[in-house]
Design a protein around this nucleic acid. Structure first.
Lengths: 252, 252
DNA sequence: AAATGTGAAAGATTTCACAGCG
DNA sequence: CGCTGTGAAATCTTTCACATTT
């Protein structure tokens, strides 16, 4: 799913980097080989759990405790962290603040991410006002909508701009990420315009499969999909309940 | 989003589910052995692509075409469908309408899903008004909020109810699924109340790990996680670009 | 003594190639 | 002949056990 090598960064010397597929042995600090996608998703959860601990004034945590807080088991947590480096102390645990910093750095959250939100309906507004963004290196720098009546309204300290000015505003605000919260019908068209403007990271809430060059990373969040998956499990639970009722009856 | 399928795929880690190597015992439609989670997520995408085709009056489709529309490769699509049964015609392809019906049945979408939305902020309202729900077996039957000033407001034909009446309304409306679109601080408490009321399928947008009995299915959608994953990839792309620039300079 | 970090085994998922059927 | 359906191989992920370090 994803090519390429190292990154710049800081801190933490590290091993010669497993030879693997003839990758250049990483430079000085931080730069690791790639993090498995499954692991990556969990690292963001650890990060949040660590933030809460930091707020609560907790300074040290064991893999067992952090795993518990993140809803995974501890070997998995340790394996995930091992993709980044060795940031714990044997017999002791992890320093909450330090580990938090290391994960942030590995995920690239120390860079300046400037997000444009395209579509200022309820979803777009919810996103624009979402506190979770601002607090972790993401700054919402522009908000667009096609609806004339919305233009100029302020949401979360940001004026809604006309989508006709998309390209100009993207450039002016130096956005480097975009969120698509528009109806399915226009999502591909807007995606194309974002890509043409040089955006290579897009989070889409539109229930369509977007086509884009493969240097563009697209992630999709799909509420209907999520509910359908729940429905599948619920249905099975129902069926097996009925089945076990039947067994219970037969057993008498 | 994964895929995630599109990449929305991963995340939402649930427990192992001891497999058991049994044959899919070809019954009629519906109750097959279990569908692998990764496959399940993609099936919902196929379903949507098929709906579009149905609307467009397309009657037949090959695995190649459907895979293309869903953004996957055709062997994968065929493998996914094979978990449900053999619904195609060799040498020909699939009947759009028939396949669509079979997938719907397998996912349990022919049952009556009644969704309660807890939290009527922008996100809750966006969900209440989301057309994708109504159109596939999901009916929003209740909408709650704790904010007094919102009580009684109408959103998408539904009056907002006080969250204090949660239990009573859940029973009255016979809701069998819930969506949590509330702040992180109160998510666990509301989750507990939902579970106590007999809800066993919950979709949460709150950025916290929810604890619940394991007969309760919880899925989590987390915007911050999604952006962080994008950031990781974008950062790597940047660095490798810089690295290759450097190599280019050195090569001269 | 306690808890990390990691090879190696076990388990899932994806890819592949081609047998099988219309 | 064309396209589906599926075993088997390749790859990725999770689990496990324990050597290692403080």
């Amino acid at each position: 799913m994803d090519p390429d090598e190292a990154r710049s960064g800081e801190a933490a010397g590290l091993q010669p980097v497993a030879a693997g597929t003839g990758r250049p042995a990483a430079g000085t600090a931080g730069s690791k080989r790639h993090i498995p996608p499954a692991s990556l998703a969990r690292l963001t959860i650890y990060l949040r759990a660590l933030s809460v601990m930091l707020t609560d004034g907790i300074e040290r945590v064991s893999s067992e405790e952090l795993a518990e807080a993140a809803g995974v088991n501890s070997p998995m947590l340790r394996k995930d962290l091992s993709y980044l480096g060795s940031y714990g102390t044997r017999g002791v645990g992890y320093d909450v603040s330090y580990l938090s910093g290391q994960i942030s750095a590995a995920l690239g959250l120390t860079l300046n991410w400037r997000v444009a939100i395209v579509g200022a309906g309820n979803l777009g507004r919810a996103l624009a006002g979402y506190p979770g963004f601002g607090t972790r290196g993401f700054e919402v720098v522009a908000l667009f909508d096609a609806d004339q009546t919305m233009i100029g309204q302020e949401v979360g300290g940001l004026k809604i701009r006309p989508v006709s000015a998309l390209e100009a505003e993207l450039e002016k605000t130096e956005a480097n990420m975009a969120v698509l919260s528009v109806p399915a019908e226009v999502a591909q068209e807007l995606c194309d315009r974002l890509v043409a403007s040089g955006i290579t990271s897009i989070l889409s809430f539109a229930p369509v499969v977007l086509q884009a060059p493969k240097n563009v990373q697209i992630r999709k969040v799909d509420m209907a999909t999520e509910l359908q998956i729940l429905a599948y499990h619920a249905q099975r639970a129902q069926v097996s309940e009925i089945a076990s009722d039947a067994r219970a009856r037969l057993a008498r």
